[in-house]
Amino acid sequence: MKASSLLLIPALTVLFAVQSCAQDITIKEKIGQVENGLLPPVQTEGQAAYNINDRMAFYHVKHSRCT
């Protein structure tokens, strides 16, 4: 195996690690958007989105799970 190929392995490992980290951030961002983007089916003009914890308190919901 050439030296350049050996160098490629750790380089790819770093690349995958960076990609994985970036995906985690994207997923976390999306989860945050979902948690802060609740909108009722009946909306008035300029309706602001709700936070899920606020809505759960409003509806007296103890637990929820979304997958």
Binding site: V34, P41, V42, Y59, V61
Partner: peptide, 30 residues
């Protein structure tokens, strides 16, 4: 979506949010 409540009103609110963020066609209703 699984929720510990007897009031299902919040369900569509969560569906709307997920559909909007993940661009699920047709599930967003308003």
């Amino acid at each position: 979506i699984m929720i510990n409540t007897s009031n299902g009103t919040i369900i569509q609110e969560i569906v709307n949010s997920i559909a909007k963020v993940y661009e699920f066609k047709g599930l967003y209703y308003s």
